[in-house]
């Protein structure tokens, strides 16, 4: 057998990140099957994985998992380079930035729920910004913003609670 010309050294980090990203991608795909009353409103279950990763392994890993999830999730759902892909990417980048800041909050007082809410609101704000600047260059985009913010509140809270529970139960320990 011919040996591969390029030898990529695969580190423990790579295995861990790909395993976590796979979990996030599975959630993205599963979630796409859930019918939602309004396009754009989604629970964002994959963000539970991002939160757990952030909490246990830090921001760098969370960013990898989140961005790999957006990329691979869009490929699987046939959304790659479609408008929805750019919206997801914008949302993910915005929430990663928010998480980068949120991480500095004292953990004694601010748990995963705070991070989750920050990320959820940053996510929808990033998406609305891209939608306004590029997809629908009209202020009418903001008409539905209150609905999206309410969804961010509800799903931010529930995802944060689920992430907090996973972290507390140690059910995520297998991710190591």
């Amino acid at each position: 057998m011919t040996r591969s010309v390029t030898e990529l050294a695969v580190s423990r980090d790579d295995y861990r990140i790909s395993r976590l990203a796979a979990a996030a991608i599975a959630l993205t795909v599963a979630e796409a099957a859930i019918p939602m009353p309004l396009p754009g409103v989604k629970p964002g279950l994959a963000n539970i994985v991002t939160l757990v990763v952030l909490w246990r392994f830090g921001w760098r890993d969370a960013a990898w998992v989140s961005l790999l999830r957006v990329l691979a999730g869009s490929l699987l759902l046939g959304q790659f380079l479609a408008p929805g892909f750019f919206l997801s990417a914008a949302g993910s980048v915005a929430s990663l930035l928010a998480l980068g800041l949120g991480q500095r909050l004292p953990r004694r007082w601010f748990g995963p729920v705070s991070h989750s809410l920050l990320a959820a609101f940053a996510h929808i704000s990033g998406q609305l910004t891209v939608a306004r600047l590029w997809l629908v260059p009209h202020d009418g985009v903001f008409y539905l913003a209150p609905v999206f913010f309410t969804a961010a509140l509800v799903f931010g809270l529930s995802n944060g609670l689920i992430a907090a529970r996973l972290l507390a139960s140690g059910a995520d320990a297998g991710a190591d």
Binding site: L105, W109, F110, V113, S114, L117, G156, L157, G160
Partner: peptide
Amino acid sequence: YLRAGDLLTLALAA
């Protein structure tokens, strides 16, 4: 699973 600061974040978000 809610910490004190989370309640603050939640209130601000609401």
